[in-house]
């Protein structure tokens, strides 16, 4: 039998129509690629405007005096000294507390925890904790640290609160870093008769340090910019002295900025901008260190 007609497949597709629609489809594609790009650039533009506004408003107010003066009712005399020192004190508490808790938890979950319900619960709990608003952590700090443990609105109370707030971030970063240490290295260590803890201390943690540091610095930079928990636990703003210990009252950069930003006088807007520049500079420095560490140790295995 001979086939005289065209094969049916050809009949079903009208090539001319396909070709005719092609131009339209390509135009849609081009239009949307421009649209997607502009949306992305819009986000970047906002960032640019934000930086420009802050710097142009606040740069004039940055002077050595700004770093040497305490808070003041007069904008020209207002300085950032107590707030900057207070933020550094806060970090001095948050960094060790959150690192010990975060790395300890990560080591437990990755190296020791067996697969059981209790450990699944701990894991689930950590991911839920990450979604709790920071202001709620403030309420926790107010009840537990400020009142129940009677720490008052001290550096220690604020430091503990902030440590718990960033704990989930550090745990997750440390878990990923620990997981990235190849199994073969652990085997090599066990094969030499090393105990589990020796293997963790001498092989796993040294291999995970870059990842842990990068993640922790980013988490700490979040803690340094957080305001809401400090407000809720009652950290004051007008402070005319520097803290001498972790049980002293203090103030912090974001608190100070919040206070200035709320004031109606236009001159205080400039002071607030200057404070923001200091805060952003601090964050930039911390992030640069994190990026440096990340680039230096990338792809080690």
């Amino acid at each position: 039998m001979r086939i005289t007609e065209k094969p049916p497949a050809r009949v079903l597709i009208d090539r001319e129509a396909v070709a005719g629609r092609m131009g339209f489809r390509k135009a849609v594609n081009a239009a949307f690629s421009v649209l997607f790009l502009s949306a992305t650039l819009l986000a970047l533009l906002v960032l640019g405007v934000l930086f420009y506004r802050i710097v142009s408003q606040g740069f004039g107010h940055l002077s050595p005096a700004f770093f040497e003066n305490f808070a003041s009712r007069m904008p020209e005399k207002a300085g950032v000294k107590a707030a900057l020192v207070g933020s550094l004190w806060l970090m001095a508490v948050v960094a060790p507390v959150s690192l010990i808790l975060g790395i300890g938890t990560a080591v437990y979950l990755e190296e020791y925890a067996k697969k059981n319900r209790l450990n699944d619960f701990i894991r689930m709990n950590i991911s839920n904790l990450a979604g709790v608003p920071s202001v709620v952590f403030g309420l926790l700090g107010l009840t537990i640290f400020v009142r129940a443990l009677a720490l008052g609105n001290s550096i220690l109370a604020a430091g503990f609160t902030m440590s718990l707030l960033i704990l989930p971030v550090i745990i997750v970063a440390a878990q990923e870093a620990i997981r990235s240490v190849p199994r073969e290295l652990r085997e090599a260590s066990y094969g030499m008769g090393a105990t589990k803890w020796q293997t963790i201390i001498r092989v796993v943690l040294p291999g995970a340090v870059p990842g842990i540091l990068t993640g922790s610095i980013l988490a700490l930079s979040r803690a340094i910019g957080e305001t809401a928990p400090l407000i809720v636990i009652g950290v004051p703003v007008i402070i005319q002295f520097l803290p001498a210990g972790v049980l002293d009252t203090f103030t912090a950069l974001p608190m100070q900025i919040y206070d200035w930003a709320k004031r109606p006088q236009a001159a205080f807007q400039e002071v607030a901008s200057a404070g923001i520049i200091v805060l952003l500079a601090l964050l930039l420095a911390m992030n640069s260190v994190a990026v440096l560490i990340r680039n230096k140790f990338q792809k080690r295995y």
Partner: peptide
Amino acid sequence: AAERAVPVVLFLIAAVSVLTTIGIVGTL
């Protein structure tokens, strides 16, 4: 002794995150 104590200590540390949740819910 260290080998036996370490997992216990680490478990207690890991329990802090659970205590935090309990603290938040309990307080509220």
